[in-house]
Structures are given as C-alpha cells and as structure tokens.
Simulated assay, not measured.
Amino acid sequence: MNQSTTFWNEKMKHLFNLYDADHDGSITPADFEILADKLSALVGQDDGERREQYANARKTLCQEIMRADANQDGKVTLEEWIDFHQHLAKELQKPDTSPEILEQLSERMNTTFHMLDLNHDGYIAKDEWVKTCQFFGVDQTTAERSFQQLSKDDKLEEDKAKHLFFEYLKSDDPNHISNCCLCFL
C-alpha cells in the first residue's frame, strides 16, 4: 500500500470513528440518535422547529451513511465503510460520475452543511466551526487554525464548504486543503 492510500484509509477510519458514537465497532442508526442528542445540547434545542430540523437532518444523514451497509445487516463495519468510500472516491474521480452518486453525495453534503451552520444564516461562522470541532473532540487552537486555512473571512460560504467536503472524500493528498475539514462528513 502506498503512502497516499495509507493516508486516505486513515482519514476514512477517523471519519468512521466519528460516526461510531457508541464505539462498538460499527455504525448503526442508534449512533445517529446518540449524535443527535449531543448535537441538540450543543446548539440549545429549546424550540420545536429546530428539534424537527435536526431530526430530519439526522434521518437523512443516517440514510446516506447506511448505504455503506453492503450485507444489509443494519450496521456498517469498518471494512464496509472503507470499501464503500473507496468505490465512491474512484467514481468521483471519473469525468462522467454517475448522476445518482452525485445526487446522493449532494444530499449528504447539504445535510452536513446545515448541521454545521448552527444559526442557519447560510454560512459557517468561525464560532460555529470551533463549537462543532470541539464537539468532536478537536481542541480550540486546532479548530481555529483549520478555519483560518479554509476561510479568508470570518465565515465559510456554503458553496466553498460543500466543495471542500466533496474534495475531502476523494483526495488522497495529505497536503490538500480539504483535510482541514476534520472529517465532518
């Protein structure tokens, strides 16, 4: 295995571990319930509309992530996760990527962006980025540095964020700017 493949596999393992909220070695719908409860506390889900938005986002993200469940047993193992994302990365590198795959990935990116845009203003502000990074165990200094690398302003625009998320999944270049996304997909 070459260095770039090793790097990409490590990235995908890290991403897998972020979604495996109960740390049982697989991703299941129960993991999304755990993450949603924690995220609700992070953004102060006092009002019903926000709770409903996050419930819908959680459901959508869960459906997209569970596509990796190759044997349809209700859980995604690390092996299934890596295989799924290897196929996805190869497909994304083609000039004629399947429209169905692009649609699925677009849904995943939209959901992820809207979960990071805590105040729903169409941007990810530095404080939103830092709060979310800290939620996933990233220290404040690292979160602030990554945000500075991703955005020249105090906010990250939706189109740029989605492009970076897209590149994160397909890039095996350890120096690619998308690696600052810290695995929010």
Score class of each variant (00 low, 15 high):
residue 184 F to C: 13
residue 120 H to T: 04
residue 155 K to N: 04
residue 139 D to V: 04
residue 177 I to Y: 04
residue 155 K to G: 01
residue 42 L to E: 09
residue 145 R to D: 15
residue 49 E to I: 03
residue 3 Q to I: 06
residue 85 H to S: 03
residue 163 H to A: 12
residue 48 G to N: 07
residue 75 K to A: 11
residue 59 K to H: 10
residue 160 K to F: 01
residue 84 F to V: 01
residue 147 F to K: 11
residue 110 N to T: 06
residue 148 Q to T: 11
residue 142 T to R: 14
residue 93 Q to P: 00
residue 169 L to H: 06
residue 145 R to T: 10
residue 70 A to S: 12
residue 88 L to N: 05
residue 82 I to S: 10
residue 122 G to T: 06
residue 4 S to W: 11
residue 51 R to P: 00
residue 178 S to A: 13
residue 54 Y to C: 00
residue 152 K to S: 11
residue 38 K to T: 01
residue 44 G to F: 01
residue 113 F to T: 04
residue 68 A to W: 03
residue 95 P to G: 09
residue 68 A to T: 03
residue 184 F to H: 12
residue 124 I to P: 14
residue 24 D to I: 01
residue 145 R to I: 02
residue 71 N to L: 00
residue 106 S to F: 06
residue 39 L to W: 13
residue 114 H to G: 02
residue 181 C to D: 05
residue 84 F to S: 13
residue 132 T to L: 15
residue 133 C to S: 13
residue 122 G to L: 07
residue 2 N to T: 06
residue 106 S to E: 15
residue 130 V to E: 14
residue 162 K to H: 05
residue 63 Q to F: 02
residue 160 K to W: 04
residue 84 F to I: 03
residue 18 L to V: 01
residue 1 M to H: 09
residue 37 D to M: 05
residue 144 E to V: 04
residue 20 D to P: 03
residue 133 C to R: 10
residue 100 E to C: 00
residue 169 L to P: 09
residue 39 L to S: 09
residue 161 A to S: 12
residue 89 A to I: 03
residue 154 D to L: 02
residue 139 D to T: 03
residue 53 Q to K: 14
residue 97 T to P: 10
residue 157 E to S: 13
residue 53 Q to E: 14
residue 131 K to Q: 15
residue 29 P to K: 04
residue 131 K to I: 02
residue 71 N to S: 05
residue 144 E to A: 09
residue 77 T to S: 15
residue 31 D to H: 04
residue 33 E to L: 09
residue 86 Q to E: 14
residue 78 L to C: 07
residue 18 L to P: 00
residue 153 D to L: 02
residue 126 K to I: 05
residue 71 N to E: 09
residue 47 D to F: 01
residue 59 K to N: 12
residue 97 T to F: 02
residue 105 L to Q: 14
residue 180 C to M: 14
residue 122 G to A: 06
residue 141 T to N: 15
residue 20 D to V: 01
residue 121 D to C: 05
residue 171 S to Q: 08
residue 49 E to H: 07
residue 52 E to M: 08
residue 143 A to E: 06
residue 165 F to M: 15
residue 51 R to K: 14
